[in-house]
Amino acid sequence: MPRLSYFANPHRFMAFSKAVTPWLYAGAAVLVGYSIWQALFIVSPERYQGDSARIMFIHVPAAWLAMAAYAGMAVSSFVWFIWRHELADTAAKALAPAGAAYTALCLATGAIWGKPTWGTWWQWDDARMVSVLVLFFLYLGYMALRAAMDTRQKAARAGAIIAMVGALNVPIIKFSVDIWASLHQGPSVIRAGGPAMPAEYLVPLLLGAVGHGLLLAALSFTAMRTDIMARRANALLLKRTVE
């Protein structure tokens, strides 16, 4: 097993990602397809919520991916800030839009699930929904700040700082929102889940989550490859103006 820094070399990364990325997409398609097929056609309706519990198979993986992408972004930012490996910043930049999309999807499917379950699109009492909303704004701030910087280097530094500050704050935000929501304890959508979830639900849910994880990895690799190719093209153009 080579050290992670082995792949910090863009050439090695390009070779490695070129070989791996198609398999990631294929694995993601199989696993996500399987979980959605199970969710829509196979699993039996939930005892209390009926068919609406089928929304869980997209909502819960989206929530996990939203958090995983932010964690990945924060770790990449830290690695970039300490060791200045260009690829780490490329990874952070690539993870942000995908993470934001999954966060938005989590919020939207949560609202759609909440309507038949609670009779309301939005429930402030549910700490998870509120935390994910704050996470969405952390993503927006990260992307807006990067976009406002006029050079790549500045965008990388500013992005790394705000991603690390945000990551340090996430546990505290989560803690405060949990306490606040517990004041007016309301129903929780995912109560049907928990350790008592039957294997009929658990297996497609977990495999689907793995599939979405593979998709996130594949999308990040593609976005990182795009970034590296754009830089090479810019370097070629710069060379021409010098010559």
Partner: peptide, 29 residues
């Protein structure tokens, strides 16, 4: 973070407001 950005005021709000959440919650409580 936005010192070198022209018209960064709204950006400051977008960056800072999520970080205000715990203080606002515990303050109101």
């Amino acid at each position: 973070l936005t010192a070198s950005v022209r018209r960064g005021g709204l950006l400051i709000a977008l960056i800072a407001l999520p970080l205000y959440v715990p203080t606002a919650i515990f303050g109101a409580m």
